[in-house]
Amino acid sequence: MLGLIGPREVPRLWERHILNCAVIGEAMPPSASVVDIGSGAGLPGIPLALARPDLRITLVEPLLRRSDYLQRIVDELELDVRVIRGRAEEKSIRAQVGGADVVTSRAVAPLERLTKWSAPLIADGGRLIAIKGSSAEEEIARDGDAARRVGVVDLHVEQCGVEALEVPTTVVVGTKRGTAGASKRRAGAPKRKR
């Protein structure tokens, strides 16, 4: 196989991986542009695209083998999903997918690094929606200050799929705020008076 999931995960593939990802669409607005960073096996992006065809989804994956696999799946399922090979922190990726309504991920990195990579891709007022496990509250407590420094605020935990899944999906949600003014000040513009 391609080594996209571990052999122990096969019996739980449907509920723990596919449905677990599909339900996060309930936290996203209609017709949103969504960037799934570190997409790997296409989680959460592919199940999300199937559950919410109104979303405009881009999968970002740095490894050639995985990005080729993702493109094959997108083509076979005839999904209107874009696959881009690269890392979220690369300038070329920021140029291609920046300004997204939502940036999502699953099992990519601790919240501190995740917000640092995600923030430049999120439009002001857009959302970070990261699938996390039982450590979600701890990550917010530990990495909340780092997230605020890169403009991701109002971090909190939400449960998705409460009505549909035996074990709901835990996501960390944050909102992108305040970076436009900061970049103008760095460019030499005076601070606005409050």
Rank of each mutant, 00 (worst) to 15 (best):
Cys21Glu: 01
Glu166Gln: 11
Arg185Leu: 15
Asp145Ser: 02
Leu70Lys: 14
Val103Tyr: 05
Thr175Ile: 15
Gly144Phe: 00
Pro62Val: 15
Arg87Thr: 14
Val34Tyr: 00
Arg66Glu: 10
Arg194Tyr: 10
Glu15Val: 05
Pro44Ala: 02
Val97Pro: 09
Lys184Phe: 12
Asp124His: 14
Val173Ala: 08
Ile5Met: 02
Arg16Leu: 02
Arg192Trp: 15
Leu55Asp: 02
Gly151Asn: 11
Arg16Val: 01
Ile93Met: 10
Ala164Ser: 15
Ser92Phe: 14
Asn20Ser: 12
Val171Asp: 05
Val152Cys: 07
Cys160Glu: 11
Asp154Ile: 02
Gly178Ala: 13
Gly181Gln: 05
Leu121Ala: 00
Gly25Arg: 02
Arg127Asp: 06
Ile131Asp: 00
Asn20Lys: 09
Gly45Asn: 08
Gly126Tyr: 03
Leu48Trp: 02
Val172Glu: 14
Asp36Ile: 12
His156Met: 13
Glu163Arg: 12
Leu79Arg: 05
Thr175Gly: 08
Arg127Trp: 04
Ser183Trp: 08
Arg148Trp: 00
Ser31Trp: 11
Leu165Gly: 08
Val10Thr: 05
Ser118Met: 04
Asp68Glu: 15
Pro30Lys: 14
Arg148Cys: 00
Val74Met: 07
Ile57Arg: 07
Gly3Leu: 04
Gly133Lys: 08
Gly161Glu: 05
Gly125Asn: 06
Glu78Val: 12
Asp36Tyr: 07
Glu163Tyr: 03
His156Val: 08
Ser134Ile: 09
Ala136Gln: 01
Pro168Met: 04
Ala100Trp: 00
Ala147Met: 10
Thr170Cys: 05
Leu43Gln: 01
Leu50Phe: 04
Glu61Val: 15
Glu15Ala: 05
Val60Ser: 03
Val162Gln: 13
Ser135Trp: 11
Val83Leu: 06
Ala146Cys: 03
Ala180Met: 07
Glu158Ala: 13
Gly6Pro: 01
Ser135Cys: 07
Leu114Lys: 09
Ser92Gln: 14
Val108Phe: 08
Cys160Asp: 06
Ser39Cys: 04
Leu43Val: 00
Ala130Asp: 03
Ala22Tyr: 10
Lys91Asn: 10
Leu59Ala: 11
Thr115Trp: 07
Val153Ala: 15
Arg194Gln: 09
Val81Ile: 06
Leu59Trp: 10
Thr115Leu: 06
Arg16Gln: 01
Leu114Gln: 10
Pro29Tyr: 05
Glu9Asp: 10
Ser183Pro: 00
Arg94Gln: 15
Arg72Ser: 13
Gly126Pro: 00
Arg56His: 11
Gly126His: 06
Ser118Phe: 02
Ser33Gly: 05
Arg94Ile: 15
Pro30Met: 09
Leu77Asn: 07
Ala95Leu: 14
Tyr69Trp: 12
Ser118Thr: 03
Glu61Asp: 13
Thr104Val: 14
Ser118Glu: 01
Ile37Asp: 00
Glu9Gln: 06
Lys91Ser: 13
Ala49Thr: 03
Ala107His: 04
Pro30Leu: 11
Asp75Gly: 13
Leu165Ile: 13
Leu2Pro: 03
Glu61Gly: 14
Ser118Lys: 02
Arg65Lys: 15
Ser134Arg: 14
Ile129Ala: 05
Ala182Gln: 14
